[in-house]
């Protein structure tokens, strides 16, 4: 544990020197300020910002996660020849990366939205969105790392990770739509809940959306969703689903590292 913390600290100080992390912070600061300052309605700004968050965070986490693994390969190799556990070397890196990405996102978001001042609805929704954003960071950085550990070929590793992002962000919804369209005559609302729980991007989107008035526009499914995700029990289940994603990916990372030959 101590060893892991040491490597985490080394990676954090390494990341603080990287210029892109400041650009990432600036991006969120600019977007959140722009939206909350210039959007005519608060809910409009919120929906736009949510869309940016649930698409951009997984995308950036995927790209940066893969690149960080491959760019730090020399450093990792040096560490692996020292009396340190493999899992500590990579968990230290991955959690340092997740921390830095999340902190930049949180500072950027809070900094930009602070312009709007205190508003209970805004901040309730925003806090939920920030929690989801941190989870998305953790999940997609971990996915990128697991795939990178599994493939020594850089192009393959990054390609696979990007495919997972594309699948979860875009293709998944299309498949769901086809499914509901085909089985529209049957009561598939409960399936919709199950499928949503399986995809962290959709899950984040639904959880945040249901805190807004727009859920009323979602029809009967929206009502079913509201009755499930809209209360404390549903929110807790969603949170557990996100935690489960993070944990299972750390487990996969551990398994892949145990088997890997460097």
């Amino acid at each position: 544990m101590f060893e892991l913390f040491r490597l985490y600290r080394i990676s954090i100080s390494n990341l603080l020197r990287a210029r892109w992390i400041w650009a990432y912070l600036g991006f969120f600061l600019l977007v959140s300020f722009g939206l909350f300052r210039y959007s005519p309605t608060l809910s409009g700004a919120m929906v736009s910002y949510m869309n940016v968050v649930v698409l951009i965070i997984p995308l950036i986490a995927t790209i940066i996660g893969s690149m960080y693994y491959y760019n730090n390969y020399d450093f990792s190799m040096m560490m692996l020849t020292q009396p340190i556990k493999r899992i500590s070397v990579f968990l230290g890196q991955i959690w340092a990366l997740i921390t830095m990405l999340s902190v930049s996102f949180l500072i950027g978001t809070i900094g930009g939205a602070a312009y709007y001042g205190f508003d209970e609805t805004l901040w309730t929704q925003l806090i939920l969105l920030m929690v989801c954003g941190v989870f998305l960071n953790a999940i997609f950085t971990s996915i990128a790392y697991v795939l990178a550990v599994k493939s020594s070929d850089k192009v393959r590793g990054i390609g696979l990770a990007m495919f997972i992002w594309l699948f979860m962000a875009v293709v998944y919804d299309g498949l769901l739509l086809a499914y509901f369209y085909s089985f529209g005559q049957y009561p598939v609302e409960n399936h919709a809940i199950a499928f949503t729980l399986l995809n962290p991007i959709d899950l984040s989107r639904v959880v945040v959306m249901l805190q807004m008035d727009v859920s009323a526009l979602m029809g009967y499914t929206g009502a079913v969703f509201k009755s499930f995700f809209g209360n404390i029990a549903g929110l807790s289940i969603s949170l557990f689903a996100l935690i489960f994603w993070v944990l299972i990916l750390q487990f996969f990372l551990w398994i892949s590292l145990r088997k890997k030959d460097f």
């Binding site: 020399d74 450093f75 190799m77 040096m78 020849t81 020292q82 009396p83 340190i84 556990k85």
Partner: peptide, 17 residues
Amino acid sequence: SAARNKVGYMPQYAHFP
């Protein structure tokens, strides 16, 4: 990993950040 306390290693190609 503790076994590597007893080993010093110089690789064919140096790996340093």
